[in-house]
Design a protein around this nucleic acid. Structure first.
Lengths: 348, 348
DNA sequence: TTGTATGCGTTATCAT
DNA sequence: ATGATAACGCATACAA
């Protein structure tokens, strides 16, 4: 009799009306007790309402609340790929921060298709979220940038908040890592260890933050006296597979004399590492590898990968803060990123 | 003048009414054109409505639609941890399947706290989702199982669908891997390679599916003639760290003669691997390691880890199907899981 | 085919 | 302090 489905036909969900009736009060009073803020309800009524709600198993109908209040308790988050360690970590941090202040996070995924971003934002806007956080990859030359900006503006004009992570290309609140500085410091430290001939793997997909990492790294090398640093920059597909395939396709002459491969993400660095090994090279005896992001996966990789650590929690905190605060004007906050040298790049 | 925030004060969002007015038709007609199913609208009207919607940038207010229709286009998904490779892969697959049929997925995270599950379900129920999928870890003896079942029943009685993944403990639609069989096959294959003295790392947190993996593995060994297989089962904390710490705490006598460590998840297997290496053991020369799940992370681990592959996509597909189909009665579908032998467990 | 009227569950505005 | 009543944006039954 219990635990079975379809027992007594589809019942109607318990509403505030039901609770009020059972408690013998008016429906607004029940509302005030259960969901309201101005707590001016007599203690006796108060208890009766609470008990009725408990007995009936009342749960507020969130869509109805959202409509009546004109605003929901949801933050919409747009990311590229949920199965990517970087983005799942980012999503986790943002959810954590949001939930700490009683907000729910609705996640949408572009699957790395630039054009899906616009559709998603449009769709998400329909959910009437309190804020939209775009944490996906910002393209250098977005196919529909104008429409996206227009859409976001429209959303913002109706009271919504827009926060961008890792993409300073659009005129909205932005939180970003210090990509340039982090990569530059890494290059300088590596140069200090004796590295000179470095191959740089940028992103084939033109992404702003990735370009900053390339430029920072090259600049760091140049500052350290590596004059021709800019000559060995390549742009394979923006993925593990892309980096691996690129490395596998390298001519023997291009590889010879190479001391290090730096990829703009750990994901790509691991792909490159895999490709290098397939070619029979030992890491780091024959060639060194470094990445960027400091994803959790690195925990299980041997040798420990040198990378640039980014404070995801700080970014998430800042992003959620900006997503819920309205007082300040358009700002751009940059969160530090600092190199972490590990076994994959020993001193030469 | 463009791209700035707070230009002309918080405007009101564009509603169906606005579109109808601009198009010179009634609001229901606009509704029929834009969101309705019965497309019995004159072509001339139809075009005017579509154009008006485009000009105004209309997006349907989803909460309002949900309320009017009495049902939303959302599936609620409860998982343990979004940053876990297994769960993020699962979430990705479910989102993919759901989006293919025009459904949005709302994710909630228990952070591995058993008691949070009940609260989350209650909260999610308020979102009026079409279905609730519980993909988190099912505890052997849930602290609030009765209340959870009651809550889910209440939800189901009001027309919601409930689907469980990897936990056959509750009286609802269930999709599960063949944990027992997968582990058993793995054990038999390993025994065939010559493995006899195997340490089994189960889950310190009493989880149903993990217990099945332990039992399956032991059974497989026993069938292969390893009489004392059940004596070397331990239950460290259910995590990378838990497995690592357990291995680090093993007495030298317990380690000596050991040929293999099998952990019930890849996550734990990798933790154990890390711990074993810290103790100076080489994998697989000194000792072998095997896991379960075949998570993506394994791609970057050397040596390649032997594991049991689970068809996440099949599970996700089945779960979403069950979440959206109402005709069939209570069923339990099991998805195959099969061992994948790799370099971490060479023939002895 | 199209428009009018009504209801969904909740909050907010108003009397009382 | 409490209760009637009017929104909120949309879909639908019904009338035209």
């Amino acid at each position: 009799m219990q635990g079975r489905s379809g027992d007594s036909g589809p019942r109607r969900p318990v509403t505030l009306d039901d609770v009020a009736r059972q408690a013998g009060v008016s429906q607004p009073t029940a509302s005030r007790v259960l969901n309201g803020s101005s707590r001016k309800v007599a203690e006796s009524y108060r208890e009766r309402v609470l008990q009725a709600a408990r007995e009936l198993g009342y749960t507020p109908n969130l869509p109805a609340q959202a409509m009546a209040r004109g605003t929901s308790r949801t933050i919409a988050l747009v990311i590229s790929l949920i199965s990517d360690p970087y983005f799942s970590a980012m999503a986790a941090e943002i959810m954590k921060q949001a939930e700490a202040i009683g907000l729910h996070v609705s996640i949408a995924v572009t699957e790395r298709q630039a054009d899906r971003e616009l559709d998603l934002v449009r769709e998400l806007r329909g959910q009437q979220p309190r804020a939209i956080i775009l944490a996906g990859t910002g393209y250098v030359d977005p196919p529909s940038e104008e429409q996206l900006v227009e859409e976001l503006n429209r959303y913002q004009e109706t009271g919504g908040r827009v926060v961008l992570i890792s993409r300073s290309d659009l005129p909205f609140e932005t939180v970003d890592f210090d990509n340039h500085h982090g990569a530059r410091q890494l290059a300088r430290e590596l140069a200090g260890l004796g590295y000179r001939r470095c191959l740089v793997l940028g992103s084939g997909t033109p992404l702003l933050s990735m370009q900053q990492r390339v430029e920072g790294f090259v600049e760091g090398l140049v500052e350290a006296g590596v004059a021709d640093a800019g000559e060995r920059v390549h742009y394979p597909g923006f993925s593990w597979a892309g980096a691996r395939e690129f490395v596998l396709g390298l001519g023997a002459d291009e590889l010879s004399g190479l001391q290090l491969v730096f990829a703009v993400t750990d994901d790509m660095a691991l792909g490159a590492l895999s490709g290098l090994r397939e070619r029979g090279l030992r890491i780091p005896e024959d060639i060194s590898v470094a990445g960027f992001d400091d994803i959790t996966t690195l925990r299980d990789v041997v040798p420990k990968l040198t990378t640039v650590h980014v404070a995801l929690n700080a970014v998430a905190e800042e992003a959620v803060y900006r997503a819920t605060t309205t007082d300040d004007p358009l700002t751009r906050r940059t969160v530090p990123a600092y190199p972490v040298l590990r076994a994959s790049t020993p001193a030469l």
